[in-house]
Design a protein around this nucleic acid. Structure first.
Lengths: 366, 366
DNA sequence: GCAGCGCGTGCAAACGAGTGTATGCACACG
DNA sequence: CGTGTGCATACACTCGTTTGCACGCGCTGC
């Protein structure tokens, strides 16, 4: 029993300021070893539970586990990580937390990571790619087991280069392109956008506008898909129906005003994100336009608030959870080895109340 | 120069799989020491920049810094933290990331933490207090320098007990009570709610209802303040005007239906959060009620979407950023020593378009 | 009865950085 | 010329955990 009072161990106990009541100072493996009468390495082998090369008696296992429980032992991730082991940390870098869509994505990622025993270290880039670069360094240094990028990175080519030969697995979601050489999980923007335009065209709309930021993540693909859908329906592509707008509520407000101030305003506006669309809903009401009687507005993403906007927003539901699951499968999941696959998931059109038949007497501006 | 090829160091170099190009394997202090021709401890002292007890020649400092730069050295936070030093990690535990209000709070916390050189480890409790407890353990184990709790913890008294004698500083925001014994930063819910009720009363409203969850964070204080404000204006307190509702969009939808189905529906509804209020806006429109012509609706928090709801929401602006700054000052800031202060910040009434004069012909249900 | 095998366990060397103490060296003074 | 002093640097141990290797004991087979 107490025969394991080896010299080194004993000296240690003297060094430490008493075994403590365990509440203030976290017990270490050594404490457990001492209390159980085994060596610290045995404790490590038992508690880590890894299929060890050396055998451990069941009775010993029992005693160790019991003592650990009693002392309230919790492993020190720092020491564990130092030795090169997994830190069970998932780094998530996002360009903008306040974007409700990304907030939802973080939620999903955090949920899924926790389910797999991982914790999430959140890196917030505040819309600035420079900060994203810095964060990458930080998170890599923190020995995250994997890195999740949410949103667009392409304006930062050198970051992508670095990412490619980093030691930890990286995956990008809503990155806007599968060409960049890093693993991505994406949504079929083309199909999603096509379903919206089809829906509007079926209701007779011919003057369909689009407003969104240029060259930002998936939005670029959505714009392209919008143009292609117009062509498919043999609808004229009018330059004034393609306006630039910041991807926030205010951007939507401005874009709607610009579009409806045209001498021939569109009868429907396709927004590449719900955030923009909700801004448009607001702007429409403010200038006395009824949605969808006077103008139809559609979004993309299906963020929670889209279901309760006034009127409820027709949008394209993003398979966020499935995408996150796929992403985690790629980097920490069972298929972690398959690093060059690029899953593309399908979105789903959700028809609510913000789109309707083309107005018989199209409303003129204001 | 190269005289520092001590035995130990040399053996190491052989052990390591070549010095590498530095891109794949992060250089350690030893690598820098070897390259510079000094000892690892000197490198540590130079790079950590701490006012060291032992002097270091300026020339040596120069060479070390230079080499570190050249090799792209980045300190290993794991090793640093293991030795007991600061990890520059701020743990943030939140009950619900999807709540737009908390998403904004996370944004603010992350921003402010980064500004001070800290990283944020996000703990997501998924509305479950049990998970919050587990997360606390995790984050403490991760040696966060401080812990930020966002939202209510009081249904978990043992957690608060644990928190009290933990080794790292903790602060709770929107915790709903300053009585629990842990440092908190709060907003003056009483004043905020009073300003809303005053605003409505000034416009002639006498039938003012309230809908929100029971016993959840600051919301409890807001409900109390609502009741007190009614009393102050000598308005009758009708039990049917105080309904229970989950704090999400759907909860707002249901609450409005319940209230407007009353034989004598209220002329104004005060919601304790914007999320609830926006749900109500939607429900009102769905049943053909005009806001604020038929019913006035107010929120609380001023989340971003509140400015673009239809109609734009009258609400109480939360001083989120100031609160976060105050919180970080308490735990990692200059005033970190003052752990028993409980700052209370002032909110601000924002009058928009969802509140108006009391209807002359009050709308009956549906 | 002894060699050998296998099972259970402990030893010790990492991991990367921080820090108290020792050591070497140069200079100045007696 | 010897010794004292102070500066610059190196050594060695520490944190808590993982893990390759070696050691001892008991059982079995010949």
């Amino acid at each position: 029993m107490a025969r394991a009072s080896c010299k080194a161990g004993h000296r240690r106990v003297v060094t430490r300021t008493q075994p403590q009541r365990g509440s203030t100072v976290a017990p270490t493996m050594r404490d457990i070893a001492l209390a159980t009468g085994v060596s610290q390495s045995t404790v490590s082998r038992v508690l880590s539970g890894t299929p060890t090369a050396v055998p451990i008696a069941e009775a010993t296992r029992q005693r160790v586990t019991e003592t650990a429980e009693r002392l309230g032992y919790r492993p020190n991730p720092l020491a564990r990580g130092l030795r090169g082991a997994s830190t069970m940390l998932l780094g998530v870098i996002v360009r903008d937390v306040t974007d409700p869509f990304f907030a939802g994505a973080i939620e999903a990622a955090s949920l899924e990571a926790n389910r797999r025993g991982y914790n999430v270290v959140l890196g917030h880039a505040h819309q600035s790619a420079d900060e994203a670069v810095a964060l990458w360094g930080i998170l890599e240094a923190r020995h995250c087991d994997a890195l999740l990028f949410l949103g667009d990175l392409r304006d930062r080519p050198e970051l992508i280069e670095d990412l490619k030969d980093t030691s930890i697995p990286v995956v990008a979601l809503w990155h806007g392109s599968r060409e960049s050489g890093i693993p991505t999980v994406s949504v079929d923007n083309r199909a999603g956008m096509a379903s919206v335009v089809d829906h509007l065209a079926r209701m007779g709309h011919q003057r369909i506008a689009f407003a969104g930021p240029k060259r930002l993540g998936d939005i670029t693909e959505r714009e392209d898909a919008y143009l292609q859908s117009l062509a498919r329906h043999r609808l004229a592509r009018r330059p004034e129906y393609l306006v630039d707008a910041a991807n926030d509520f205010a951007g939507g407000v401005e874009a709607l005003d610009v579009l409806m101030d045209l001498s021939r305003p569109p009868t429907a506006i396709v927004a590449p994100t719900d955030v923009l669309a909700i801004g448009m809903l607001h702007a429409a009401q403010r200038r006395g336009l009824r949605v969808p009687t006077d103008v139809s507005i559609s979004g993309f993403d299906d963020i929670p608030v889209a279901a309760v906007s006034v009127p409820a927003l027709t949008t394209v539901r993003m398979p966020t959870q499935a995408m996150v699951v796929a992403a985690l499968d790629l980097v920490i999941g069972p298929d972690a080895a398959v690093t060059d696959s690029h899953p593309v998931l399908q979105p789903e059109l959700v028809i609510r109340a913000s789109t309707g038949p083309v107005p018989t007497h199209p409303a003129e501006g204001a």
